[in-house]
């Protein structure tokens, strides 16, 4: 049915004597939204660092569209935990950053970003500096900066972690509709169970460090999920089930 887009095979990494990732194997299909859920400090962000090339794994293989991933020209658009907007660039110029790095002229990049501003709720704010925007708007600008690069796959590292609960729910609902409209392929790292259940087609649960994948769950709920009361109730049951798994981990032995 769908094409296998990303394939991680037995990825492992250690920092000195500390094994961070032990054996991570997972797949993401084209057009699929997959989440990686795990306790904090489990190495979720490390996994992203390996994918973006900021760190390299000691063993295992990463394949993209069936081919081993090259060190140059990664197929990912990465959205970091905090928005990482540059305070000295106006919103529009923050959004064009990836395009400019790819070699597009500022003018062309702006022309490409401009039609997307409405969908991201940023019309009228393109000339503002990030400091003048609310947390939710900044996060939408960061996502716009990510998707406009038109890379084959999105990597979202706890994109809403820094927002207050209400804004986060709104942003999740917004992202859900956005994902429905565009056929993005996305890998999301989060420790928010609800976020994972609401947004994902599949969820991988990581163990505490050294991280392994302990469980894979398919979420077969119809979309949109956040707006529908009955679906939210079903989702709650899945959330409880996942929480049981997370709680079953023993407390990390303190060194």
């Amino acid at each position: 049915m769908s094409v296998l887009r990303l394939e991680l095979d037995a990825i492992a990494i250690a920092y000195g004597a500390m094994q961070v990732l032990e054996d991570i194997s997972l797949t993401v299909q084209s057009g699929e939204f997959v989440s990686i859920l795990g306790p904090s400090g489990a190495g979720k962000s490390t996994l992203f660092r390996i994918l973006t090339g900021a760190a390299s794994s000691q063993s295992g293989e990463i394949r993209f569209d069936g081919r081993p991933i090259s060190t140059q020209d990664r197929p990912f658009a990465f959205m970091p935990q905090r928005d990482a907007l540059m305070p000295w660039r106006r919103i529009i110029d923050n959004c064009t950053l990836g395009l400019e790095v790819q070699g597009m002229s500022r003018r062309d990049a702006r022309a490409k970003v401009a039609p997307l501003l409405a969908e991201f709720g940023l019309v009228g704010f393109e000339r503002h500096y990030p400091a003048a925007l609310s947390g939710g708007m900044r996060q939408r600008a960061a996502l716009l900066r990510t998707v406009v690069q038109e890379r084959p796959m999105l990597l979202l590292d706890e994109p809403f972690g820094a927002l207050d609960a209400l804004t986060r729910s709104r942003m999740q609902a917004w992202l859900e509709t956005m994902w429905e409209n565009h056929s993005w392929t996305a890998l999301l790292v989060t420790h928010d169970v609800r976020e994972a259940v609401m947004l994902s087609d599949r969820i991988y649960i990581l163990s505490p460090r050294p991280a392994r994948i302990v469980r894979e769950i398919s979420i077969d709920l119809p979309r949109p999920r956040l707006a529908d009361h009955a679906i939210r109730a079903k989702a709650a049951a899945i959330e409880a089930d996942i929480l049981d798994t997370l709680f079953s981990f023993q407390e990390e032995p303190t060194p």
Binding site: T52, F78, A84, M86, L97
Partner: peptide, 22 residues
């Protein structure tokens, strides 16, 4: 900010580009 530099690196920015832009 480390995040900004990592973001630029993930976009494939060169060392010079990272210096000038970030």
């Amino acid at each position: 900010e480390r995040e900004i530099e990592e973001l630029l690196a993930s976009m494939g920015a060169s060392g010079t580009r990272r210096f000038v832009t970030a």
